[in-house]
Design a protein around this nucleic acid. Sequence first.
DNA 1: GTACGTTTGTTCGTAAGCTTTACTAACGAA
DNA 2: TTCGTTAGTAAAGCTTACGAACAAACGTAC
Lengths: 405, 405
Amino acid sequence: MTTQVQRSQADGFRPSPGSGAGVGATIYPPTRALRPTSKVLPEHARNHNRSLVLQVLYTSGPQSRADVARETGLTRVTVSDLVADLIAEGLIVELGQRADARPGKPAMLIDIHRDAFHIVGVDLSEHRRFTGAVIDLDGRILARADVERDGATGDAALALATDLVRRLLERTDTPVLGIGIGSPGVVDPLGVVRSAPNLGWSDLALQAHLAETFGLPVHVANDANVAVLAEHAASDDDLLLVKIGHGVGAGLIIGGRPVVGSGFAAGEIGHVVVGTDGGPRCACGKHGCLEAWLAAPRLAARLDAIDDAAPDAASVRDAILREAGRRLGIVLAPVVGALNLSEVVLCGPTHLLDGALHEATVDTLRTRTMAEHNRDLRLRMTEQAEDIVLRGAAVMVLSGQLGVS
Amino acid sequence: MTTQVQRSQADGFRPSPGSGAGVGATIYPPTRALRPTSKVLPEHARNHNRSLVLQVLYTSGPQSRADVARETGLTRVTVSDLVADLIAEGLIVELGQRADARPGKPAMLIDIHRDAFHIVGVDLSEHRRFTGAVIDLDGRILARADVERDGATGDAALALATDLVRRLLERTDTPVLGIGIGSPGVVDPLGVVRSAPNLGWSDLALQAHLAETFGLPVHVANDANVAVLAEHAASDDDLLLVKIGHGVGAGLIIGGRPVVGSGFAAGEIGHVVVGTDGGPRCACGKHGCLEAWLAAPRLAARLDAIDDAAPDAASVRDAILREAGRRLGIVLAPVVGALNLSEVVLCGPTHLLDGALHEATVDTLRTRTMAEHNRDLRLRMTEQAEDIVLRGAAVMVLSGQLGVS
DNA sequence: GTACGTTTGTTCGTAAGCTTTACTAACGAA
DNA sequence: TTCGTTAGTAAAGCTTACGAACAAACGTAC
């Protein structure tokens, strides 16, 4: 009976991609979308392979067409064809023959044309000013420009941001691949700032405005969601980035894709209440919000309130930072547990975060989650300091325009 | 200057799929994988479109080839070609001409051959017994079989499960599309049970064992992760399912894809500590774990301890359930906030969960998250009761084998 | 120095897959 | 009967990737 069943099954069913045929080869593919949602044409496949070639070159550096073919699994013929297109478009250049001596025909090295395009990145998340930079394809910052915000909101703030982009575009003679913007607040995938109270923006079509003004591809996302892209470029795991500044926000990448959330408000953890014992009153009216514990200005104010002359000032400062870290750990523990995260990154003022606070967060996470499951959890400070949003904006443009990161 | 820049850019760059060319058309595609990881061949595209046709029929029911073409965006020619293949494989059948009178040639209705295959689903998560069922493609349960576990662990438990599958396979004469298993513990994507303390399993290659034994496609995943598939079949949003039974676990679908976690332990929230005021001692040694508050046996025991004769027994019961619900809300709040979830589903004993506990969880979530961002959050009981894991197992097989759900 | 093997990148022909165009079949409406 | 509409199919063409074969260019063994 069972043999009959399996015979019919084997005849009637063609296995889907990713799951080989035959006994024991069928696996549940976790990366496959559950439901196909739109058709795929050959040109889409080609675009994917095009990005794949660029990706290999981007991460592994100059190499021959044959090398790329081996790494991608495509044939040399196909790679040559794709590369020919990409050279014609100016995205790839030939660098000359490989130097080292090997048997066989010498290889012609190719690479992404790293000088062919620049990227404009802008960070609107700082409270006091907008910052921006011209960035090359490798994420190096080539030129900077800032503008003091001076409390500007609404259209005035938009004008400041637009002008900042204009000034940055004037700083380069190289074609610009695109403009990436990290904005505070809730930003939808079409680049509409749904709500950014600090800037007085609501339903502002920032992407459309800038795209029309400058005639360039524009990508806009929440600042923390942008920042996590910069961090993700270095690793491949699921990643949570907590950005602590004037407010507290997070960016999240799961399975290689940014999490946006049902209302495009993923990562908005600043007003989640921490613990069951009250806490400082928050601007939102609640008590014990994460932001009330952890926002940089509030934390700094609490530290400043301590009289340096007092005999135990140092230990009080330490206790304050430690408590803030503990509160962060309390909020993160359920998230780390539910998502089984292996990597959490902190981003913000180093003098506040990197020390007692960081330690306390680690300790709290350890004691409040199942050690067995989260054994290899890493909690670390970002190494990108001030420029993380700018670099993330560049990654966002690279990813959106070339499918590379 | 800027005009020059944009001209070169427009010439040199071909927009990637999903982002149209030209001003304002470029969007940041949130569903695109950041980095292409493997090549895509035409046959992969065809398989995708094949699944797309099946998906449309599966969800929308019998219709003509032309209807499918309109809904998928593929041409009638391509749909006819795909359908011809699928009919040859026995996955689609022609049902005869459409009855209603319309101008033009009458349509030949086609549908997924819903009687051609059955699915075997098994739930290993109950403490006292293993349950299983033969399920049709629409998720209807056609036959059941159970086996008392009687404390069996290790190889004995494996033998019980294997025998249960064998008995289920004997209950149907229809070809079996595949076997789906929901197991407690941590299960990796290859169907290896990395760790299931209750069953005494560690690194047990359950998928491989069953596939070899029965010569059928087998899919294994954690019980809560399986259950959430059943729930997801009804909606399309991000979804968190909390499964409360002997333990407490969760399953999570984000962006249409199950979250697995870095150690394949996503959803293991049972041993996250809740609140900052201690709590009952847990089997794991910590105090105030979610499981210590909420696991069905412990909750029931606390309720049973109340003397029914006592004057205020009812209100004490209520307080206990309410407190448990509050604890659940406290743990979920950071997760809901970080992921901006719109839908959370509870699954477990209705008499415990659906009442004061549920209400308290909703209240707690409301007061501990930002109402503005999570306005449309729904927290509800599952409607699938006992069979959710069995139905989820069927969805897992459907999804894995046909790309349909 | 010559023959041989190796590696690169290209050319040519082929197979797969989807589209456009054009057709036939079958129906209702005027 | 004629006209317009809809379903499904057939033929041709375009895109895309592949395999086979080849020439170029190199090291090495003898």
